[in-house]
Design a protein around this nucleic acid. Sequence first.
DNA 1: TATATATTTGAGTGATCGTTCAAAAATTGG
DNA 2: CCAATTTTTGAACGATCACTCAAATATATA
Lengths: 191, 191
Amino acid sequence: MMPRKPEYDRDALIGRARDLFWRHGWAGTSLKDLERELHLKPGSFYAAFGSKDALFALAMERYTQEGVARLTEFADKFGPKAALKAQTTFVIEAPELPSKACMLAKTYAELQAREHVLAQKAAKHMTEMKACFTNLFRRAQEAGEIGQDHDPERLAARYQSDLLGLRLSAERTDVDAGLIAADIAADLDRL
Amino acid sequence: MMPRKPEYDRDALIGRARDLFWRHGWAGTSLKDLERELHLKPGSFYAAFGSKDALFALAMERYTQEGVARLTEFADKFGPKAALKAQTTFVIEAPELPSKACMLAKTYAELQAREHVLAQKAAKHMTEMKACFTNLFRRAQEAGEIGQDHDPERLAARYQSDLLGLRLSAERTDVDAGLIAADIAADLDRL
DNA sequence: TATATATTTGAGTGATCGTTCAAAAATTGG
DNA sequence: CCAATTTTTGAACGATCACTCAAATATATA
């Protein structure tokens, strides 16, 4: 009397979908693309995820949670300030990334003008990341790694802004993103 | 025997199209949107511009040429270094702008993964802007406004990257872009 | 005013969009 | 093997996409 189980690994599919969405964006990723990449026919797709937008939301959540996890891991290993410095080189060098640019920033830029729900969710996740940076700057301050005469929130906003620019620059062929990353890291040492 | 003339002002239409594309992006702007905004029926539209992509290319050219013109104007009025500083506040404060974010960056981010022709054109225009920045940094150096121990091209790449991040940050509601702009300008003074 | 030549109009093209759904296939417990 | 329950399958839906084109309309010269 018990039914069969699905053949796919839902978690793995979310990861693959995230990569597709990350690379090609929301409008740039069609259901045909997803069906091909996830090996799912329409019926299975909608049974598993409900809609393209619902899957996109899951993909962004996965993206953010992994980003926070990596940053936390860096901080545990190297300390708060070194983690922030390591992040600058990681985001432009990690070869497994589907795109150098930030998925949240791409989504926000693409959908914000239409006030799409996914743009709001992207914004929420970016706020989440910013809080993560703020926390690291505060810890760096407490550890004496950077001066006391700075507002951690302001530092975080600037740092996040720099990262967005850096990661977009890293997509270009006429820019040496390594130099920019080095300059951003050097700025952290001057705080 | 001479025919009638078109009712529209082609140059003005390109400007309005640029604003639409700038705000909503390439995929986010449909021909219906353009017809509504430009008051053109399909036939007139294709007679005037050939295709959506052709008009988008014209819009990017207009965008870039006006950007270069404004920067040149700033430099003539205030000098090279002050022009670079003025640009940081202008891009986030000018109320007439359809979007704070850079149209070229948005286009590149949206279409690069599919290797769309318009992404290549956006990249070309960004290179053009970068050269403009390089030129200003070089002039600032010659004027003694910044130290000699810097590579103008490297400074330009970093500056452009910072601007991209700043302008994307300016689209967010949870970030005070003015503070970031001030920090970027302050960095220029430390060179 | 008649004619030549252009623009304007809008219905219509095939393709693709995200999505639905009923039938077919598969798996597990009885 | 049968029955219950689920997943898988793929044809098809209406909407929208960028775009075409022939007919209607307007203008400027002769």
